[in-house]
Simulated scan of single mutants.
Amino acid sequence: MAVNILFAAHPERWDTYQAPLETALSKAGVAARLSTSLPAEEVDYIVYAPNSEVQDFTPFTRARAVLNLWAGVEDVVGNPTLRIPLARMVDHGLTQGMMEWVTGHVLRHHLGMDAHIHGQDGVWRKTIPPLAQDRPVTVLGLGALGRACAEALRALGFAVTGWSRSPKDIPGINCLAGDAGLRDALRTAEILVLLLPLTAQTENLLNTARLALLPRGAVIVNPGRGPLIDDDALLDALDAGHVGHATLDVFRVEPLPPDHPYWAHPRVTVTPHIASETRPDTAAQVIAENIRRGEAREPFLHLVDRKTGY
């Protein structure tokens, strides 16, 4: 008997996900009825984007799991009508894309590329950067994305410190945790990468006091979540020269409003939420595997802990 799968996301996503999902489900041996419109009481699984029209999960009385298309779940995890398992998206394509973007921008700042890209004015600017081993980099957040980026930077020779709310042990990475660990992680961060989930505990994590802990001239790279940073505090730190540059891919309001101070600030690089994206082909494989697991009564992958919010 076929399982009924509701695709609940923006309509334009259906065209890019339908074929990959059908292929992945077939390869996983799952007989499925996949649709954007099914009677709620007949739905077994919901493939979900938090910005979809589905916000009340109460009618889905036989659904076994909600399978998020995004890595971030802050817009759905607190929904009081959601009482079934919620799985976040962790897939190879999203991880690889994030790793490429982060390593590219860390290398850009480490090597001082902007001075040569933008300084074509006839002035011979010869500055030699330190080797990566002498450039301390801190990654805040050691989940799937943070760990992958920390390991890639370590493989390039950087001295990498990682911080997470709970203790982690990653070979080659100086792993810290807790409030004292966060202070130590910030004090050494010549380049700081933010890859934390957005929770009540992480919102405005980079405030005035914590920005002051960074070495003078530190660079911030944020492909995680916009509200991790207190925007006013960051702008003050940039204006004072304490923070040398901020490369920001995520923001509290997206698209970033045209009159936002970040656009015109000489020490800020804005990228339009492109650090990584869920790729339909690889994401479909993760979704199909979770549905196969559900049908086989095996544990789901990447389940969200409602207490921590990720």
Rank of each mutant, 00 (worst) to 15 (best):
T271F: 10
H265G: 02
A283T: 11
V286L: 14
Y262F: 15
H260I: 09
I291D: 05
Q285I: 14
A288L: 07
T271M: 04
P258I: 03
R297C: 10
P266H: 07
L301N: 12
D259Q: 13
N290S: 11
S276M: 05
R267F: 00
L301D: 13
H265D: 04
R292H: 12
R293E: 07
R293Y: 07
R267Y: 00
H260V: 11
I291L: 06
H273A: 08
H273T: 04
R292F: 10
P272R: 02
W263E: 01
P299D: 09
A288F: 07
R297K: 14
T271G: 07
A284C: 02
L303W: 11
T282S: 15
A284Y: 04
R293V: 10
I274Q: 13
P258Y: 01
I274T: 15
W263Y: 03
E289Y: 10
A288H: 05
V270W: 08
P299Y: 05
R297Y: 04
E295W: 03
P266K: 06
H265W: 03
V270A: 05
R292C: 09
P261Q: 03
N290K: 11
E295L: 14
F300S: 01
H273R: 07
Q285S: 10
P258D: 09
R279M: 13
E277V: 15
A296C: 07
R292T: 04
E277A: 12
D281E: 15
D259G: 13
S276I: 04
D259K: 06
P266Q: 06
P299K: 10
P258R: 09
P258G: 00
I291R: 02
T269S: 12
P272N: 01
A296V: 02
W263D: 03
L301F: 12
A283L: 06
E289R: 14
T269E: 02
R293K: 13
H260R: 12
V286C: 04
T278Y: 03
T269H: 00
E298S: 08
I291C: 05
A275I: 05
G294F: 00
E289L: 15
L303E: 15
E298L: 15
H265M: 04
N290W: 05
I274V: 15
T271H: 08
A284V: 04
T278R: 02
T282Q: 11
H273V: 07
H273M: 02
E289S: 12
R292I: 09
L303F: 08
I287R: 10
Q285Y: 03
F300H: 06
H302L: 04
R292G: 08
F300P: 03
R267E: 02
A264P: 02
P299T: 10
S276K: 00
R279E: 13
P261G: 00
E289C: 11
T269V: 12
A283I: 08
A275M: 06
A296G: 00
L303N: 09
N290L: 07
E289V: 11
A264L: 09
D259N: 14
P266I: 08
L301W: 13
T282F: 08
A288I: 09
Q285K: 14
H260M: 07
L301C: 10
E277Y: 13
A275Y: 06
A275R: 01
G294N: 05
W263M: 00
E298P: 04
I274R: 12
P258Q: 03
A264E: 09
V268H: 12
P257N: 04
H273L: 01
E295F: 01
P280I: 06
H265F: 02
I274P: 04
